[in-house]
Amino acid sequence: MPVRIANNGKIWQRYDTTTRLRLWGGWLGGTVITLICWQLIANRTRWEFAADAPRQLAIFLQRVFPPDWSYINQLWQPLWDTLTIATLGTLLAVIIALPLSFLAARNTTPHPVIRYLTLLIIVVSRSVNSLIWALIIVAITGPGVLAGIIAIALRSIGFIGKLAFESVEETSREPVEAITATGASRLQVLSYSILPQVMPSFAGISIFRWDINIREATVIGLVGAGGIGLNLNATVNLLRWDQAGMIFVVIFGLVLISEAISARVRQAII
């Protein structure tokens, strides 16, 4: 009990004595573990390499700068592919994940067994990184933009599905009861009482994932799944660091623009 009786009245403290001791112990333990880890890392570092790092960085920057500006002419198509992969991948994921979210949410699922199956799909999708999905899909479909789209979609289904079903579970029950009481069918109840409540968050989640997917789509080319990552891989293999530098500049610009768009859209929704 945080309230104690002392000789001159009641004393209130935020935590009682055992909780305070536990908190203390927690902080102490955390500090000790941090120090031990620090020690381990220090022992296993080759300090000659670490000391060399600034020089290596300088050399790297010299190779990258100035970027090969003319190389941009060969980047428009990969850039477009990247955008396509991210956008179509997100769209595909949205089309699959939003209906799934109604099967996964406790308050809308038709049956607990269906709910657990859906949750399984969501977990599997989430637990594999886009790059790994891309590796798998490229092995099946061969390299190219299609592989990229599917890889991005497979990873995004879990992300969108999870956030979406959580927002379905947070909807208020009263409108659902009211619409049910009119004699509406289950689908009508969903579309008239739950959907309007979750539309803003569905839109926000989708655009947020699109923004993430733009960045992921620049990477999955490394394993052959299309987009600007293909070029990055090629230029690095050819040691054309000036061209790689140009690619970095382009990716940076793309990410900035997508950030701005998604921020603008999310603001408009809320």
Binding site: E174, P175, E177, A178, I179, A181, T182, Y192, S193, P196, Q197, M199, P200
Partner: peptide
Amino acid sequence: MIFQEYALVERL
């Protein structure tokens, strides 16, 4: 049916 907290769909 009519409800205490109105139970309207707010965004419609």
